[in-house]
Design a protein around this nucleic acid. Structure first.
Lengths: 131, 131
DNA sequence: AGATATTTTTGTAATTAATATAAATAGATA
DNA sequence: TATCTATTTATATTAATTACAAAAATATCT
């Protein structure tokens, strides 16, 4: 496996992701990073996002539509608003769920789990109530 | 909203899904259903899968790669093998997780959640141990 | 620093998954 | 049967992502 070589683009992508709380898509990263690197290619963004996921520096969130990326490394889950589609962090105490299921379930070794909550975010709820 | 009209293709897609335990993708459904309807269009498969999801007769499982579909309506979750990619059912007692989080989390109304477990399935584990 | 080796980027093309559309067909209703 | 409306088919299109080759950037060695 070839050694990972430094690149300014990758560093910038990482920093950009760390500065955001809203789990951007590859395309959002591309749009914003272009201010610093006007010639950056979308392929470069995808490639570096994949690399960062591989090294464990960021996480990929797969859901309806485009994948999203998250630089928060502390264990947590996500909430998606079914109205506006925003994605918020959920720091819920669900630590040992995978472990519990691993003990009870006999068709394989459960190593972890992803939990995606859904519903209505506060902002959409407010708008609905006002209408 | 227009009334739903019977179609042989939709019935066949539903029956096919009910006969399987492995959560096929739209393309797998298309390939197999062609034996009965050689001229069926992939668009028809997608459209009917969406309709069946809307009526609640089947569920859509969004994950890495193509969406998968599941005719089992009893509440359960899924396990994906990170080696072979197979998807298995997990009948785990996680009933009130969404409810619990809804009470503790203040940025919106949590209506439900999807849980995706991952790890190594028994079959892949066996193969790895033999090698 | 200069030369060399290897990775990364860029620009573009290709692929995959899914949706859209319009004419033809099938199902429902009177 | 006649008519109305939904569905299918065939095809085109969009969206998300990956692949590739030449050029540029980074790391290593002397």
């Amino acid at each position: 496996m070839a050694a990972l070589k430094y690149s300014r683009q990758r560093e910038s992508i990482k920093n950009y992701l760390c500065s955001r709380e809203d789990h951007p898509t590859a395309d959002m990263v591309y749009t914003d990073i272009r201010r610093e690197f006007p010639n950056i290619s979308l392929g470069t963004v995808y490639r570096n996002l994949s690399l960062l996921v591989e090294t464990g520096e960021i996480r990929k969130i797969t859901m309806d539509g485009a994948d999203r990326f998250d630089a928060k490394t502390t264990p947590h889950h996500h909430f998606t608003c079914r109205k506006c589609g925003c994605v918020l962090d959920v720091m819920a105490p669900v630590e040992n769920l995978a472990e519990t299921v691993d003990e009870a379930w006999e068709y394989g070794d459960v190593e972890g789990c992803r939990i995606e909550f859904y519903g209505i975010c506060s902002r959409c709820k407010k708008i609905l109530n006002e209408a």
